[in-house]
């Protein structure tokens, strides 16, 4: 901003923005607080909750009672597995489309995006029955594959928008200076492509980690990732506020941190380059 803003004005802005920000963040803050209290204290009135003793016991009981880390590990395998597999398939495709564009490249890209518009519930039954027939219900393999397929268009698009920004002339320059193809790839292309690949990886792990249609409909006890495990807290009207909070905090913390790091790439990734 070119204009100077008075300190008084800035103080008012700061105050309002912080109040609004804290209000929006409050539910997360509140479960963070609840997770450090005993089950009996967690359902008391807000003031009593804060003044009661703080303890780690909920985190321990969540693991003891439900084998929490098995579900955590399922989430890791499914989200990282599907994303890495997707990248292996998408990097060559996006690369080719960005550097050797043909007449139909644009149509192919648009068609790929259109597959993302298919509502999952529209193909729920075929996928469910195929998994059932192949004995893949409640397995991680099925989810790795399905989540890879639903995120593949986003992965290709994100990579494409990043690769397209790498200037082709720089490759020619390297070639003129006598770089071999191998050197060209390792010293010139990779360093420029890595940031784009990294942010694509990050955003898609986030999306896969939070996916809650296929994970809820295709898993039971064995392969359930955290989305499905947490959903199991909804069935009994039993009040397990502290345990639910502890389980939730552990489920969202890694993704929250990754999300904050990738907030700049988020806009680009989620709008398919339509807003930068």
């Amino acid at each position: 901003m070119a204009r100077a803003v008075t300190t008084q004005r800035k103080a008012i802005n700061t105050l309002i923005a912080w109040i609004v920000g804290l209000l929006i963040f409050f539910p997360i803050l509140w479960i963070f607080i609840l997770s450090f209290h005993s089950e009996g204290d967690a359902i008391k009135s807000p003031l009593e909750v804060i003044t009661s003793t703080w303890t780690f016991e909920s985190y321990a009981t969540v693991q003891e009672r439900s084998n929490y880390f098995r579900h955590f590990w399922n989430s890791v395998v499914i989200s990282v597995g599907s994303t890495v597999l997707g990248l292996i398939i998408a990097v060559p495709s996006a690369w080719a489309m960005a550097f050797v564009p043909g007449k139909r490249t644009k149509d192919v890209l648009m068609w790929m995006l259109s597959t993302k518009m298919l509502p999952p519930v529209g193909v729920l039954l075929p996928i469910y029955l195929i998994c059932q027939n192949l004995g893949l219900l409640d397995t991680r393999i099925a989810l790795v594959f399905i989540l890879m397929m639903i995120n593949l268009p986003i992965i290709i698009w994100m990579l494409y928008t990043y690769f397209r920004e790498i200037p082709g002339e720089i490759l020619e320059a390297a070639r003129m200076d006598g770089a071999s193809l191998r050197e060209e790839v390792i010293y010139v292309l990779l360093p420029m492509a890595v940031p784009g690949i990294a942010s694509t990886l990050l955003l898609n792990i986030i999306l896969a980690w939070n996916e809650a249609f296929w994970t809820l409909t295709l898993t039971a006890a064995k392969a359930a990732p955290l989305t499905a495990f947490i959903a199991s807290y909804s069935s009994p009207e039993g009040l397990f506020y502290a345990k639910l909070s502890a389980a939730s905090i552990m489920a969202i913390a890694p993704i929250l941190i990754m999300g904050w790091f990738s907030q700049k790439q988020l806009v680009r990734g989620l709008t398919f380059g339509a807003v930068k």
């Binding site: 963040f25 980690w209 489920a251 929250l256 999300g259 907030q263």
Partner: peptide, 24 residues
């Protein structure tokens, strides 16, 4: 920091945010 606070809900998995609002 305010920006980080405001965008946080987007990263919370749907089952967690729904259950937290429902119960807490």
């Amino acid at each position: 920091i305010v920006r980080i606070l405001v965008i946080a809900p987007f990263f919370v998995m749907p089952t967690v945010s729904a259950l937290v609002w429902k119960n807490m």
